[in-house]
Amino acid sequence: MYKAKVNVTLRPSILDPKGKAAHHALQNLGLNQVSKVRIGKFIELDVEADSESAAKEIVESACSKLLANEVMEDFEIEIE
């Protein structure tokens, strides 16, 4: 059994209204050192597979079919 950690993020070219709102709130808190906020999703999956590469392949398929919308999002996978 493998554990997969997936980060889904909005593509850099895409405006992130949630990140912008959070950034604005941080500025209101006086945390002016924060110059940018981007908000994405973190997803954990338990995967039954024979090898790490097989597990990665399954998770990649899960991401491109469902977990991420590649029109606007990118994803990164980490297998442990």
């Binding site: 405006l15 209204p17 949630k18 709102a21 029109v71 606007m72």
Partner: peptide, 11 residues
Amino acid sequence: IPGAMMHNQKL
């Protein structure tokens, strides 16, 4: 149909 939906700009 092509494209995607994002949160409204003003959230």
